[in-house]
Nucleic acid binder design. Sequence first.
DNA 1: ATAATCAATAGAAACGATTCGACATCATTT
DNA 2: AAATGATGTCGAATCGTTTCTATTGATTAT
Lengths: 344, 344
Amino acid sequence: MATIRDVARLANVSVSTVSLAFSQPHRVSESTRLRVQEAVERLEYRPNGTARDLRVRKTNTIGVLLHNLSGPFYSELIRGVEEVADRLGLTTIAAGCSGYEGQGSVRLLHEARVDGAIVLDPSIKSGDLLRYAQESLPIVVLDRPLSRDFQSDYISAVAADHELGGFLAGNHLLDQGFRRFAVIAGPVDSEDSRLRHVGFFRALRAADIDTVTIPVIHSDFTELGGMRAMGTLLEQGWSLDAVFVANDEMAIGALQVLEGHHVMVPHDIAVMGFDDIRLARYVTPSLSTIHQPMYELGQAAMKKLEGALNGTSTGGLEILPVTLVPRSSTLASLASEEDCAHGS
Amino acid sequence: MATIRDVARLANVSVSTVSLAFSQPHRVSESTRLRVQEAVERLEYRPNGTARDLRVRKTNTIGVLLHNLSGPFYSELIRGVEEVADRLGLTTIAAGCSGYEGQGSVRLLHEARVDGAIVLDPSIKSGDLLRYAQESLPIVVLDRPLSRDFQSDYISAVAADHELGGFLAGNHLLDQGFRRFAVIAGPVDSEDSRLRHVGFFRALRAADIDTVTIPVIHSDFTELGGMRAMGTLLEQGWSLDAVFVANDEMAIGALQVLEGHHVMVPHDIAVMGFDDIRLARYVTPSLSTIHQPMYELGQAAMKKLEGALNGTSTGGLEILPVTLVPRSSTLASLASEEDCAHGS
DNA sequence: ATAATCAATAGAAACGATTCGACATCATTT
DNA sequence: AAATGATGTCGAATCGTTTCTATTGATTAT
């Protein structure tokens, strides 16, 4: 690889002049600029980013840390981040955190390989984040609980309004006339799931429904987990109008179990999900759910990061609203139809 | 941020000793190691990755370049890459290539910010890749055409056997007794689509079917594109048994149009996709398709890259087999049933 | 007893850029 | 004619590591 020295030599100028020719072309004479230009092309010179980063102590790169890069769920979110970052001339890189400490993406933070980071991985310990975050490396956590002792000028947060989502879900099911509910929640340590749950119960209580008698099953946010949870619910023989499931993955699992047991949705039992993943629209019946504004979340996170980067930090927590997406799985009009569908 | 000098000062040793204490702890005495250790903790010292990279001329990072990070399609693939990279102690970072040249992820290559790259983005010009690829920056292209003049010791390729996929699809449809076909292909400049098409026709010709009279519509690999293509096919009034669609996205679009026109699948027309995206299993009727081994593709790409990185390069092109995934949308037994479904 | 070996540490030279201050050279002002 | 100001260029310092080559004192071999 040709270095800037090689270019300087070939163009018969000093290294500093070459550098100037790049950064402030108007400051060097026409003739030298041309000579430099030619040398660059002859040598196929490309600047070494690592060296530059070291000197200017900036990488112009921000990292998005995910639990694993695999989640299709985060696609939209990253698009939002990228869109904003691009406008700011920043490169977005995403890294999964599958491996153990030191490995993988934590290295991006630990070794200051990025100027800032957006963290979506609940598996990264808050203590670590707190240590990493500093003026030269602000962090925005997205959709992850931040506890009271998790305060720092260099950490801010963006989240969807999960409580509101639960509330909207509850109201919707009530509107449709359902009265006997069950909840399939996420893992007990999931703050998101808890908030959704809280919002849901708030809606029910506002309608004078006794929430204490409502069966709640905690599962693990996966399709399989949803299947097991729904199976349990059926076995226990509850009489139900509707099930509020804490995310779409599990809801889709639940749908399958119901179909397997010839329980008609929404006729016998309505099902409500949360997240609005792509699949939700395509399953049969299509799944009513709460839409998380993933793209906007990504944008908001990146904007917050920008603020922290250029000092005009806003800090704190920003909460974005979610919206109800009613589909077939909770439609009362369908629920009251006859068993057999006529025509298509 | 504390530097290694600060640590050295506080521990009362030289900078080089601190460095040694990290890299080869047995080479320094117990007592100094402890002093260094303590200084590190007191100062919260973390090595600067940028400086290290510059000195050792290696980043221990490999990049995965995607068209956009958004594609859920690539999730599995990246998982495969990550799994292998982790074992090798390499960090995987993914970057989209949305922006223009110089921006975004090309910077990773251009400025040598990674030790190697896996490229999935057809929008990156082959010429650029050729320029970037060199001993210190090997590149593996994945599932993208590499033309004859695209030869370099530092570029290798991994791809799925699209031709075989088309062939399997053709045979499957023939097995199910379909005889009058149409093809919804991808963009004309898509090598993948072309190969799928070729394989499909090879199967038909082997069964003495005249492929010349088969209608072919080129679309753009999107759901909407599939809808338009199917719409056109219907308008033109062909009598068809089955449609081979060059990818699942378009196939799903086609399915929707057929449903809209009250054409029963597979009773009236069978539909076959390609890729085996997650959605394929969940649409109604579930979509028969050709499974691309995304995870294995990712693994294979990373292994090839490893070979190039440590000199034991294998180079060339590796082709992985695909498999047939028959589902409802092409099942002859369903096709011959009565119009009205009884029960579920 | 002297030379050779070894362990532990230090010093200094890279790595490849950017950037600051200095220095000519030449045109302009007083 | 001297002072001032641009303009274009250059040398050297710097960023924070790693690593090569001394240096020192102690231990072992001859």
